[in-house]
């Protein structure tokens, strides 16, 4: 923090980011979980979570974020989200004599809809973040040449 070669933007931006990035992340999770009772849903909440990571990365430089979520780990999380969507569809199909992607058991509030929302949120957030990361790393590699 103190040395002059610290990557990223100025001290003001870093201080404000330290306050707001967590709030944006929590708001994204809130939007994901209220998709069945109000406006919101898995896609919008997932994009908000990805935007909080992008915000962190624009302020602090890419090394801070790359330590926690790099490309190899992000594509694994995103694939797990896509696979879980399919498995949730097959669960109702096999065990409960319902059509594919429907369910016959009664969950807490709205059947499988909140769980689908969470799964789509995982897929979208990690996928969009590694897409942004790939585009930025491509540009950085070209500038270095």
């Amino acid at each position: 923090m103190k040395n002059k070669e610290a990557p990223g933007m100025s001290l003001i931006v870093k201080s404000v980011t330290r306050l707001t990035a967590g709030l944006i992340l929590i708001y994204g999770i809130y939007i994901v979980f209220r998709g069945h009772i109000g406006p919101g849903g898995g896609f919008a909440g997932g994009v908000i979570i990805a935007l909080s990571l992008v915000h962190l990365m624009l302020a602090f430089g890419k090394d801070v974020v790359l330590k926690r979520l790099d490309e190899a780990r992000g594509i694994i999380i995103s694939s797990l989200g896509a696979l879980a969507f399919l498995i949730l569809g097959i669960v109702g199909f096999l065990g409960f004599k319902a059509p594919f992607l429907k369910e016959r058991f009664e969950h807490f509030s709205a059947g499988l809809i909140p769980i689908y929302d969470v799964v789509i949120g995982v897929l979208v957030s990690s996928g969009l973040f590694i897409t942004f990361l790939a585009l930025v790393l491509l540009t950085g590699k070209r500038e270095k040449k």
Binding site: G35, H36, G38, G41, K102, A110, G111, I113, D117
Partner: peptide, 16 residues
């Protein structure tokens, strides 16, 4: 469906 939001009921249950 048990979902008050009709749009997400359509995208995630009726037309999954």
């Amino acid at each position: 469906t048990g979902s008050a939001n009709i749009v997400s009921a359509i995208t995630l249950n009726f037309r999954s």
